[in-house]
């Protein structure tokens, strides 16, 4: 058996058309040895949850710049759970006001990253979140 590959879905829910950040993080996670499924712009929560299911990912990374995170993120987590994927870790990146971070975490988000976060930090947090849990 080969080493455990971490599978990550990178998606952009909602309507904003800026995918630079999503692409950069996708590439950084690939360079960190992960298998990254990139689904691109304008994904509905249903599409994201369905892709996460079919791809059996460990992590869903959501890039949101539109300000609609409080509507989109809890809905996606709800759908993941409804599909039996409660083990999937959800990370959010983008422009998220500080006061919304606790709300997102309470909804089940593992971590929220704003502009300027180093991609290495994100990769390490993902590795910890996925592999750390399996050791215990």
């Amino acid at each position: 058996m080969e080493e455990r590959k971490i599978r990550v879905l990178i998606a952009k829910p909602g309507l904003d058309g800026h995918d630079r950040g999503a692409k950069i993080i996708a590439q950084a996670l690939r360079d960190a040895g992960m298998e990254v499924i990139y689904t691109g712009l304008r994904q509905s929560p249903e599409m994201i949850a369905e892709a996460a299911l079919q791809e059996d990912v460990d992590v869903v990374g959501l890039s949101i710049l539109s300000g609609a995170h409080l509507a989109l993120v809890p809905r996606i987590i709800e759908l993941l759970r409804a599909n039996g994927q409660e083990h999937v870790k959800v990370f959010v990146g983008g422009i998220i006001p500080e006061e919304d971070v606790p709300v997102l975490k309470a909804a089940g988000v593992t971590e929220v990253y704003g502009p300027g976060t180093s991609t290495r930090e994100v990769a390490e947090a993902i590795r910890q979140a996925v592999l750390g849990e399996e050791v215990h």
Binding site: K5, D31, M34, V36, Y38, G40, E46, M47, A51
Partner: peptide, 22 residues
């Protein structure tokens, strides 16, 4: 393809397959 350097991969084919995801 898997990157021979990192062992990671960027799987982007779904990007073009949005019409059938639902």
């Amino acid at each position: 393809p898997t990157s021979p350097f990192s062992g990671g991969a960027l799987l982007g084919d779904r990007l073009r397959m949005k019409d059938v995801t639902g």
